[in-house]
Design a protein around this nucleic acid. Structure first.
Lengths: 263, 263
DNA sequence: CGGTATTTTGAGTATCGTCAAGGCCAGTGG
DNA sequence: CCACTGGCCTTGACGATACTCAAAATACCG
């Protein structure tokens, strides 16, 4: 599978160094060159299928730009999103069997693709690379647990607040989704209402109502269907009913960006 | 932290080989010996704290026996379980910072503990060990995604059905929770109603009602508050509304155990 | 056999899902 | 330039589901 990739093509060779991804910047130049040799650049348009559940992918992917969503398709035809992949994220099971979910592009996306065999060989020879993959996995695990926390919230407004906060923290530095100009946080939600609904385990209509409920409560302001101002950060945190230490540290960084910088 | 470990003590040296854990059985004898040298055996009783959120643990833990729960404590004082650890699972962040959740014993538990520094040093020298840790992470990630799928279910009966199925599949081989005698599956739920409620994002009372709803629907039979017969496996799967390929493969193994063996 | 923790049950309320209709926006073609 | 179209988002009304609070029943332990 993973064959109906119409929009893909090889990028101009050497157009961009591997070190454009921060995690590679510290690696030895020789390793970077080896990676560049086996790299292919692929382009996806929103909705394009990157991987299908059950595939044993022949390539390991690294997101250069854009957002991919991981999702499971149910027998009912419905699908449930189990996570988003952003710049720097790795997918495709290193050293392991088939993937357990589909991967689709949520936005226009650029992916660096590495043939599985050479990548794994490189992995075995270079501890730095293996360490990076391991860190990546740990990160993904943390994010998965964050989603679990969010999904554990019994009210949809709470789940949505958590979703917005994750967007403001984990995804802030990696994508251009969050602006902190003039003392306000402005976040762009990169997926549709239907996708949010799938992610949060609710219906589209309920998500819509929840957005407006948060707005009515004075926690956010709806600028456009895709962009929101975070009016009351602490209120949002309170709405989630939680503030895990993880989010707290990320939140304090966010507050720092708000405070002294440009206001 | 991780100091109020009253029940811990060193096990008799060499009482049990490292290869008691299946994943280690294939490893070189020299490596196993090195691991045994830095191993400490710790015992926990239900409710004992193993790790606190925010700790940077000085030890990597490996569950030998029993069940630990990973949980986040909310400001409201409530806590939400983000996963269970069973035999063979590794916790404590290798190569990384603090843990993002508490770890508590859910049952009587035996843990093999390895001082962080020597374990990481060993990890760097031995690809087999690193590969094993990596596989372990991939497994945990899959389980986290499973939980996400289950939590995404909008009905509590659906989430509970998913929980029971996960218990029958992922946790079946590793703990003595599932009996398949006389052609029926009998599963022991190792945690309290309150814990299930925390895990599935519902209230204790709702969990109770959901159990009885599944029983009334003829999908399960309640033997005791902790043990249940799986009467209609396919019905349970249908109740979850999903059957990810992952679960399907594990389920077919379960059906195999049901069919030809002893019936 | 009592005492405690856990589980279950009941009644009323809040929240969410469902179905159906309407509004907004961008792209298309006359 | 404007009407049309299709996709996405919003709104409304009603039924289903889950939560709250309270009390009773059961299981567990000594």
């Amino acid at each position: 599978m993973a064959a109906d990739i119409t929009g893909m093509h090889r990028g101009p060779n050497g157009a961009e160094g591997i070190d454009a991804i921060a995690a590679f910047a510290d690696m030895p130049a020789s390793l970077r060159r080896e990676l560049e040799l086996i790299r292919r650049v692929r382009f996806y348009r929103p909705g394009q299928v990157v991987l299908c559940e059950g595939d044993t992918p022949e390539e390991i992917g690294l997101v250069r730009d854009g957002i991919l969503r991981m999702q499971k398709t149910l027998v009912t035809g419905r699908q449930h999103i189990v996570g988003l992949l952003v710049t720097g994220d790795i997918y495709g099971r290193v050293f392991d069997g088939p993937v357990h979910f589909d991967v689709e592009a949520a936005t226009d996306a650029v992916v660096w693709s590495f043939a599985r065999r050479p990548f794994e060989a490189l992995l075995e020879r270079t501890p730095e690379l293996e360490r990076m993959v391991l860190r990546n996995l740990l990160n993904e695990l943390d994010r998965a647990r964050d989603w679990m926390m969010i999904l554990g919230n019994r009210k949809v407004t709470g789940r949505l607040a958590g979703f917005l906060l994750v967007l403001c923290t984990r995804f802030a530095e990696v994508e251009h989704l969050v602006d902190t100009e003039r003392g306000v946080i402005c976040v762009t939600v990169p997926i549709s209402r239907a996708d949010i609904a799938h992610l949060l385990g609710a219906r589209q209509e309920t998500i819509s109502r929840a957005f407006h409920a948060l707005a009515d409560a004075g926690l956010i302001a709806i600028r456009s269907p895709q962009t929101f101002e975070i009016v009351d950060l602490d209120g949002l945190v309170a709405e989630t009913g939680e503030d895990s230490a993880l989010q707290l540290s990320a939140l304090s960084r966010l507050r720092d960006r708000l405070g002294p910088r440009r206001a």
